[in-house]
Write a protein that binds this DNA or RNA. Structure first.
Lengths: 250, 250
DNA sequence: AATTATTAACGTAAAAATTACGCTTATTAT
DNA sequence: ATAATAAGCGTAATTTTTACGTTAATAATT
């Protein structure tokens, strides 16, 4: 791989900085800060929720905000997001995907800062409740969300749009459910995501036709008299079908 | 909107920098540079092409690369991309959309730099040929692309994947064609994007069923004996249908 | 001047997928 | 015992997609 010597590096850096600032000298504040913010989805008993937290320090003290962090020099953006996510929920290995960058010149007053939004889907019963509480984080139902700081409300809107289009052709819904779930639960998740009622008979037919669900012996007796069979997601089968190019449109 | 005073700003900056670097003092090179690279698509007589250029300065002199730039402090990422795009093709108001960020810690040797990939679709006969030539830029057919610098080859792969999934449900194909185009031309574009032959009768039926094409009097006599009618895209009708929530899956 | 080759354009039947809706079943509460 | 409730299975009607036959317009060829 190409490697620049120190002298060349000095020159290159100067040239880059002159491009960025339109001049050769620059002050310490002449830089673009890089941050990431996490849009964390959870699904709780038929309701789609979002994890937000109340800021305890300036700027924007007391206002609700997404969970985020500046990106360190020696970590990737995803690593930064995983770091804060673990810090606040205790969770590792969570489904997370880049949404888009938020980079309007004046999005953050005071200094130039871009943020890369990342949305995460978590199984809402797995997180560490003490940690969440300690960080002033709260699960809010989607339709009761408070106003968020800066452009964070827009991030949430964009993330929901993405979740909707993504859930259409990839079974990422399972990331939001417990490992064992029932078909009525799965349907209520899709109904929450798309904000519309679906026909249970057609939903069941469609979902089972993909062949990525394994029916378990056990039944969930908490939510109905008859009880609904638990299913689990067949990750192997899913990977196999994806490589074969199957369409999972729900 | 919240506004920090100067003193607070100093403190905030210090705190941010200590997060980023894990220390309070930092050298001039302790920053993440923000760049953008453009994946520029064109469609030329049945062949999907990409605009790349041969670097004339270090680093990576002589190697092919996408067209890109560092993002200036007072411009958005999109503005930066539009700036280089105009510089090299002379074109303004081009269809361009964020792809994703490329941010591996070691993606660029020498300094930490993230790049936001943006893909652009241009009508290949509109660009300024002298400008392109002056910048050592060349249109390459997709299947003859040379190896590109850094992670630029990956950007191209990702952009093509995005173009494919996007063209499925949004008529962005029109961005790659001249204002007046024939149905066989449109079909050959889709065949180039998806790398597969389609049935002309079904393609025609499907595309016309959306009701966003206006048939013109004029015929294109260059490509066939019979000649094919020109069509143009009905932007108004399209917007109307989008707001009504119509699905444009091709 | 008639014939051939080429590709645009139109149409229709078969197959597949989606939608709408009826009915039975298991279980708890009354 | 019976009623109430939601799960689970099935089937007909409708819509969409796919496959493919045919005609039409024109330039090149004989």
């Amino acid at each position: 791989m190409f490697k620049v010597g120190l002298a060349t590096f000095e020159n290159t850096t100067k040239r880059i900085n002159s491009i960025i600032m339109g001049k050769d000298s620059y002050s310490l504040h002449d830089k673009i800060y890089v941050a990431t913010d996490c849009i964390i989805f959870g699904f709780d008993d038929g309701v789609l929720k979002l994890l937000v937290f109340k800021r305890t320090i300036e700027p924007h003290k007391g206002i609700f905000s997404l969970i985020g962090s500046f990106v360190k020099l020696n970590e990737s953006i995803k690593t930064a997001a995983e770091r804060v996510l673990e810090e606040i929920t205790g969770l590792k290995n969570v489904f997370m995907e880049e949404l888009k960058t938020y980079n309007a010149v004046d999005r953050d007053p005071g200094y130039r800062c871009i943020s890369i939004g990342q949305y995460a889907l978590i199984k809402i019963n797995d997180y560490d409740k003490d940690l969440v509480e300690k960080h002033n984080a709260i699960w809010y139902p989607f339709d009761e969300l408070p106003e968020l700081v800066l452009d964070h409300s827009q991030m949430v809107i964009d993330a929901l749009t993405r979740l909707r289009s993504k859930a259409r052709y990839q079974p990422i819904g399972f990331e939001l459910l417990p490992t064992k779930f029932t078909l009525p639960q799965l349907q209520s998740l899709y109904e929450a995501i798309y904000q519309k009622k679906m026909d249970s008979r057609n939903f069941r037919k469609k979902v089972l036709s993909f062949g990525v669900l394994i029916k378990l012996e056990e039944k969930d007796k908490l939510n109905s008299k008859k009880g609904a069979f638990f299913y689990k997601f067949d990750h192997e089968k899913y990977e196999e079908l994806v490589t074969r190019g199957i369409n999972f449109e729900v």
